[in-house]
Amino acid sequence: MTRKLSRLALWVIVLFPFGFILTLSFGQRWPYPRLFPQSWTLSNWIEIGQSGAGITSSFWLSLSLSLSVAIIATTLSFWGSRQIAFHPQKQVLLRFAYFPYVFAPVILAACLQYFFVRSGLYGQLAGVLIAQLCITIPYGLLFFSSFWNPKRKAMEESVYTLGGNVWQAYRMVLIPTARPTILTCFFQLFLISWFEYGLTQLIGVGKVDTLTLRVFQYVNESNIFLAALASVLLIMPPIVLLWLNKRYIFRLNTNKDLL
């Protein structure tokens, strides 16, 4: 009984913020000291469905930006980590990958701001994409650094002596054996990009209106109902990813003991 109650309490604690935000997105007018909003309406949701109120476009912008960042950064960091792992100066090169996290992404962005202004990328989507790659690629490099070991190298060499080329080694052996690791990295990089605020704000100068920026904007405007609605949209993709992770990746990792 106690265990059941504890479990119930745990579920309530975990689910309450999500339920609260979802409920709030249907609210209208909430004067103090009322416990709940004065009225409930679908108008917030209908509004974004019709005029968009900018939220829908922000959602798609964020989704395409984060997917692009995750795809590019995962690909480059998987390949790059292979080059670093077997490089004689491996430790020195890996130390550079810690840079964005030692200084914090926003400080890195402030340092890079001059170059973005000079190259005309300031306030542009491409600029934000490149800025986000500056923090996600090092993360990916660090993430994959433990993946490469002498056994993987020997396996890659086996492909070459059996007649395969580099492309075949990646396509037929390295990528398939690394699939769970690659997918986990992809999800993590997607989430970093999805929730990125400071860097996007600084390089995008508010012109690249991602969903995360929009949530903060509504919060600053004290528009709690639209902020809640945007938050619901904001947490949807991570929830889908968590579900996919639990259903597919976790199973892959437990069923297949790869190397």
């Binding site: 002596t161 059996l162 297949k256």
Partner: peptide, 26 residues
Amino acid sequence: IVYLYQEPLLFPHLSVQENIGFGLTV
């Protein structure tokens, strides 16, 4: 020239027949 290591280094995602046929596949 094929190099065989101390460990068999079979490709873990391929079955026995797929492993044996790997050189022909490439």
